[in-house]
Simulated scan of single mutants.
Amino acid sequence: MKTASGAQLDFGRLALLLVMLGVGWYFWYSPVFWPLKLLVVMMHESGHALATLLVGGSVDRIHLAADESGSCLSRLPPGMLRQIAVYSGGYLGSAVAGAGLLLATFRFRLRRWVLGAACVWLVVMGLLYAGDAFTLAFCVGTAAVMGIGAKWLPDGAVDFVNLFIAAFTALYAVFDLRDDLWNSAVRSRSDAALLADLTYVPAVVWAALWTLLAVGLLSIAAYRSLHARPQGLQMPPVGSRARRA
């Protein structure tokens, strides 16, 4: 299967992504994946924080909890659109992070840069905005692990870690929407409920909109990531003998 630009579907990448998605889904409730789930919660809260800064607000602090919940406390200038952007930034932020990781890992093969960027992000967020010792410890500790991995792991292991984080983040972004927004009991306490109070648009409508945007974004990123660019023909280097001829 080719795109209009001639890129071909890489069945090896597709198989690997499906395997990792399957592993993440099958062992979803395993305590082994608790750090990864908390990492995606941090992405969610970072989405709120980034949206706050983009609309001219300020972030006071971010809290993570061991039960995989989180909160971002911020101050916003007046305006409904600003509030809509900030309330939407969490769920869409984690979807954007998942899409970005898929592209960085599969499409651009950034390898150690992925872990290095994640390390810097966690340190900055932890030092600037961590509102409690647990959040700071998680951010700094996870950053240290990623930094060590970026420095010392062999290339193949770095690729494996990046691919699994990318797949798990994409899976969690969708599951997060399913659990938090399509469960009526949870939805009543979610960002969708805050927007419903603000706009009088029902929370389930916001849930549907965010789900469509997140799934669409992840689908586009996966499609782009799973299509390898054509390599084209490469001319051999001209040697000294050829130049003399």
Rank of each mutant, 00 (worst) to 15 (best):
R107E: 13
V145Q: 01
L36T: 02
A143D: 04
Y26H: 13
L128M: 10
F168N: 02
G131P: 03
Q83F: 03
Y29E: 11
G131H: 01
V41F: 02
L102I: 09
R187Q: 06
L195M: 13
A7K: 09
A192F: 00
S225E: 10
A99T: 07
T3P: 00
R187W: 01
R13Y: 06
L14H: 07
A203H: 05
R187P: 02
S190H: 12
Y200R: 13
S74D: 07
R229F: 05
R244M: 14
I165C: 06
L213M: 14
S58N: 06
L110D: 07
D132C: 09
L76A: 08
E45W: 00
V120I: 15
V120P: 01
W152R: 10
T169F: 01
R61C: 01
V204T: 12
M1W: 14
R112K: 13
H44K: 06
A157L: 11
P31I: 09
V204R: 15
R224F: 05
V238P: 03
Y29K: 04
G12W: 13
G89A: 11
A65D: 08
S188V: 07
L38R: 10
A4D: 15
V123F: 12
F164D: 02
Y91G: 00
A97N: 07
T199R: 11
L128F: 09
M125K: 00
C119M: 15
W113Y: 09
H44W: 03
I165K: 00
G56Q: 10
L81Y: 15
W182N: 02
Q83A: 11
I62R: 02
V215M: 12
T135R: 04
D67G: 06
A97V: 15
Y29H: 12
L81W: 15
G98T: 08
A49H: 03
S46C: 08
K2S: 03
R187Y: 03
G156W: 08
W34G: 05
H44A: 05
P31A: 12
L128N: 02
S225V: 10
G98Q: 07
A170K: 07
A144V: 15
S88A: 15
V140K: 01
A117M: 12
R189Y: 11
L233E: 14
I220C: 08
G100N: 05
R107H: 13
Y91Q: 02
C72I: 00
T169Y: 00
W206K: 00
P77Q: 05
L110C: 11
T169V: 10
A7P: 14
G216F: 13
S188E: 14
Q231E: 15
L233V: 15
D197H: 08
E68W: 11
Y91T: 04
T135M: 03
S219L: 11
L102M: 14
Y26K: 13
Y223I: 03
V205P: 01
C119F: 10
W34R: 12
R112Q: 13
C139G: 01
Y200F: 10
F11V: 10
T52N: 01
R243P: 01
A185G: 00
G6E: 04
